[in-house]
């Protein structure tokens, strides 16, 4: 089996140490970081995503696969010339004020990162002001807002209103997600997109980037 296929298998199985060892082997064998990322890790996560969509696997399997990918890709950093990487998009992420849930948001971040996005993760319980400041400072193409609680869902809309008030609304696409959030709710509060899980979030960002 080629080392790239082995990387895929180790990633899908969530075996981080094995993925790290295989990356070293791949580099020693002359493969470039881009090939290893694209044909090893991103290819693996596409399989993971498909299995997740089909309910063959659930969040724990996704988390350990994403972790294996992160471990593997971190091994490649010394081999990547700075400025060499072009990112899919710059994305600021965070869980809204009053909400401390981060698993979904972390998974979205890891999956997007694995698919070539630059992620600026503001963490949990992020104030509306902090989101506005981050949009001002980082000038991301996307702002991803997460809320797990029905009690914090309205805050998603408040962040959008605050961007409007700061004159930044047309500078960034706002994506929302979280267990109680729906497409209907996303439209109601004027978000640009909704994704029901981390896999759909990757698809959504890719689609929106392609559409310009």
């Amino acid at each position: 089996m080629s080392v790239l296929l082995q990387i895929q298998e180790a990633t899908i199985g969530g075996r981080a140490e094995e993925a790290v060892a295989l990356v070293k082997e791949a580099i020693a064998g002359g493969l470039t970081p881009e090939v290893i990322i694209q044909d090893g890790f991103i290819a693996a996560m596409a399989v993971v995503g498909e299995k997740f969509k089909n309910h063959e696997i659930f969040v724990p399997e996704m988390l350990v696969a994403a972790r294996a990918m992160q471990f593997g890709i971190s091994q490649l950093e010394p081999y990547m010339v700075s400025g060499e990487r072009t990112y899919l998009a710059r994305i600021v992420l965070g869980t809204v004020k009053g909400d401390l849930h981060d698993v979904g948001k972390n998974l979205v971040g890891m999956m997007l990162q694995g698919n070539g996005a630059e992620i600026i993760d503001l963490g949990v319980d992020v104030s509306t002001d902090a989101f506005v400041r981050a949009v001002e400072e980082h000038k991301p193409q996307f702002l991803g807002l997460s809320s797990l609680l029905t009690t914090t869902m309205p805050v998603l809309g408040q962040v959008i209103d605050a961007l409007e008030a700061a004159g930044l609304r047309d500078k960034v696409k706002v994506l929302v997600g979280g267990a109680p959030v729906s497409q209907q709710f996303a439209e109601k509060i004027g978000a640009d997109g909704y994704a029901r899980d981390a896999i759909s979030a990757v698809d959504l960002v890719k689609r929106m980037v392609a559409a310009g």
């Binding site: 969530g14 969040v59 724990p60 399997e61 988390l63 350990v64 849930h101 981060d102 698993v103």
Partner: peptide, 11 residues
Amino acid sequence: GVQKLLMDTIL
């Protein structure tokens, strides 16, 4: 912790 618990169901 949620994330740690979920991952440990496998690890």
